[in-house]
């Protein structure tokens, strides 16, 4: 890849494929973000990744990508499609970027679309973490759903919450309860601001109950993930535990930044090139019936050819040569 006009832009790519959103960033060696993209996965992670790659190409022209890191629940898929030099879990990736940004960080609160995490850091290394993937009551999807039900956009949620003088007390143990409790409060005549603020409190309380029980949330605390966009939640957390929550500028893409930071010393990247955005890629799946495990095997196809397979517990499909 040589560029006609002088020095080509060099960088490291971080890919975070989550179930709700797909994030791609390009950073330089020092970790500054040169370019980023944040889009909905919409159940089609390949499409999301390909469209991110084509806008990267459109925005920057030729780029010399020296390393690729993949994270998120779809990290394996991202690896198979783009060719990653490191495939890292989200917890480590989030910790890496937060520590890079603020070396003395001690607590990371991360709330994304579908899950939430708490990571404790001491002296620059992770010492404890917890993660909630089962309960939706503390995540972005829940907030979004409730905002829609109240007839306000997710972006407005925060300003509504901040205008409340006395937040309504909403039961936040689970999505179903919270929803019926909110309806009840509405019917009792609480105003929208108080209900929204109450919702933010419920989410914060729910997070603290589920993830932080018995843990020492000491400052500095970094708050990242898509939900950090909402100043109502930040305020609710600060009210609840009486400590400042710092929101980094790149809060929604911190996982991707972490993945990119981890590949800065790559020698020969496995990256397949931005042209993967032009391939006709699609996934298919089947159930293997060769043994009682009946594994769901996932395949990525390029036109008619299978380029990757996984999901089998025994590895017989993953290792098959085409």
């Amino acid at each position: 890849m040589t560029s006609l006009k002088g020095e080509e832009l060099k960088g490291y790519l971080g890919i975070d494929v989550g179930s709700v959103t797909t994030k791609v960033v390009l950073i330089d060696y020092d970790g500054s973000v040169l370019w980023n993209s944040y889009r909905r996965t919409m159940g089609q992670p390949i499409r999301a990744l390909q469209s991110a790659f084509s806008s990267l190409k459109k925005d920057l022209g030729g780029v010399d990508i020296r390393g690729v890191g993949a994270t998120g629940s779809g990290r394996k898929l991202a690896d198979h499609i783009a060719g990653a030099d490191r495939v890292k879990n989200e917890i480590t990736a989030h910790a890496v970027s937060a520590i890079h940004l603020l070396p003395n960080v001690r607590t990371i609160v991360e709330i994304g679309g579908q899950d939430s995490k708490l990571i404790l850091i001491r002296n620059g290394v992770v010492t404890d973490f917890s993660m909630n993937t089962v309960c939706a009551a503390g995540t972005g999807s829940f907030l979004e759903h409730q905002a829609a039900r109240l007839g306000i956009s997710i972006g407005e949620l925060g300003s509504y919450a901040l205008r409340s003088a006395s937040p309504a007390r909403i039961a936040g143990r689970c999505t179903v309860f919270a929803e019926s409790d909110m309806i009840h409060k509405q019917q009792m005549g609480h105003n929208l601001e108080d209900i929204v603020a109450g919702l933010c409190d419920a989410l914060a309380r729910n997070y603290l109950n589920n993830l932080a029980r018995g843990k020492d949330l000491s400052s500095p605390i970094i708050f990242q993930g898509g939900v950090a966009a909402n100043p109502g939640i930040k305020a609710a957390f600060e009210r609840e535990i009486n400590k400042e929550f710092i929101i980094p500028g790149h809060y929604p893409i911190m996982g991707a930044i972490g993945a990119a930071l981890l590949v800065r010393d790559t020698k020969d990247t496995r990256f397949k090139g931005l042209s993967v955005s032009e391939q006709r890629l699609y996934t298919s799946s089947f159930y293997c019936s060769d043994c009682p495990n009946t594994c769901g095997v996932i395949e990525i196809n390029d036109s008619e050819k299978v380029i990757a397979r996984w999901g089998d517990s025994c590895g017989k499909w993953a290792n098959m040569e085409e």
């Binding site: 917890i91 480590t92 520590i99 290394v125 993937t133």
Partner: peptide
């Protein structure tokens, strides 16, 4: 319990022991 969720926790746990730093 999703297998990916468990896998993520176990990976992060091993990273934590190995003190993965940038």
């Amino acid at each position: 319990a999703s297998d990916t969720g468990i896998q993520t926790r176990v990976e992060a746990f091993v990273d934590m022991i190995g003190k993965v730093i940038v």
